[in-house]
């Protein structure tokens, strides 16, 4: 298994622990990741709000480079995943739409025939690699750890291929198989507000407070996420939420690849767990049993 890797801008900075842990987990499982050469920003929700053809064509530049590699695309950021998938589907919608984008790409000497699939690493791990094979590699079971699986909005709908758009099970099944106690989490696909945290902070704070309340009420020790924007909103703004709403959240919010990496025997340092704002309690405190 090998994929063309599109990290996206967040994973170069605020989402660095996601990039590092994803690469290590894939390496440990023997799944290849080749970074798309000189990739550019997907434009996220911003460029498509301003100019659609430019936004789609800039995204298609990345797909064109991936197609030269002959590999399906792995996009870990929910926003990148959504935009890349959207453009891919748009170009498969009809020959005229493909030709339209390719007319723009031609100005840069590029073309894309829409032959690739755009995938999220969660889908690659659970649906293609398989939970059973992951279990075979586990060296440290997550026994006793209460996990709230947070999928966020964009990877689940409408571009994702998840089992259920309202109550997806991929993260639930993955971490249950690793021994964790996956708590019922009704807010698992509720939106975190994304960039609203910058433009309309009051609106986004409420969304994140609601999600954290659900995780806390369910008795979760940790929230696992699949998206850099969800991660930063839920984690880095926690003290702001506490101040505004008089709450006392101290909830670790980590990438699903970081927790999976721990189960696979990678260290906290390797997985950049020390770069998180709210620290994940150490294994001793949480009595995660080690079955070597």
């Amino acid at each position: 298994m090998e994929y063309a890797y599109y990290p996206g801008c967040s994973l170069e900075a605020t989402g660095r622990p996601y990039d590092v842990s994803l690469r290590l987990v894939f390496q440990r499982l023997g799944i290849g990741l080749k970074e798309i050469e000189d990739w550019n920003c997907c434009g996220a929700t911003s460029y498509i709000s301003m100019n659609k053809l430019t936004a789609y064509s800039l995204t298609a530049r990345n797909l064109a480079y991936a197609e030269r590699m002959g590999l399906d695309v792995c996009a870990p950021c929910s926003s990148c995943f959504t935009i890349l998938s959207k453009v891919n589907r748009h170009m498969r919608w009809g020959e005229e739409h493909k030709a339209h984008i390719n007319e723009v790409l031609a100005a840069a000497g590029l073309s894309y025939s829409a032959s690739l699939e755009v995938l999220h690493p969660l889908g690659i791990l659970v649906d293609f690699y398989g939970i059973e094979r992951i279990q075979e590699r586990v060296v440290r079971r997550l026994e006793g750890l209460k996990v709230a699986p947070y999928y966020g909005c964009q990877i689940v709908r409408p571009q994702g291929r998840f089992d259920d758009r309202e109550d997806p099970q991929q993260l639930d099944n993955l971490f249950a198989a690793l021994g964790a106690d996956v708590v019922p989490f009704p807010m698992k696909v509720r939106c975190c507000g994304g960039m609203l945290m910058t433009s309309y902070e009051d609106v986004a704070l409420k969304l994140n407070r609601d999600i954290l309340t659900a995780a806390s009420d369910a008795g979760a020790d940790v929230v696992v996420t699949t998206c850099p924007l969800c991660q930063i909103n839920l984690e880095a703004y926690q003290d702001r939420i506490n101040k505004v709403y008089g709450e006392r959240f101290h909830m670790p919010v980590i990438y699903f690849t970081q927790l999976l990496g721990l189960a696979l025997g990678l260290s906290r340092e390797e997985l950049k767990l020390d770069e998180m704002v709210v620290p994940l309690p150490t294994t001793d405190q949480r009595r995660i049993e080690v079955h070597a």
Binding site: A13, T14, P17, D38, N40, N51, L58, A107, A108, V277
Partner: peptide, 24 residues
């Protein structure tokens, strides 16, 4: 935490990016 870049990453293909924007 090393999670904010103090310098931008400028891609090598800016010429391509500009050509795409202009054409679109």
């Amino acid at each position: 935490r090393g999670r904010l870049a103090i310098r931008p990453t400028r891609i090598r293909g800016m010429k391509e990016v500009r050509a795409i924007i202009k054409k679109a």
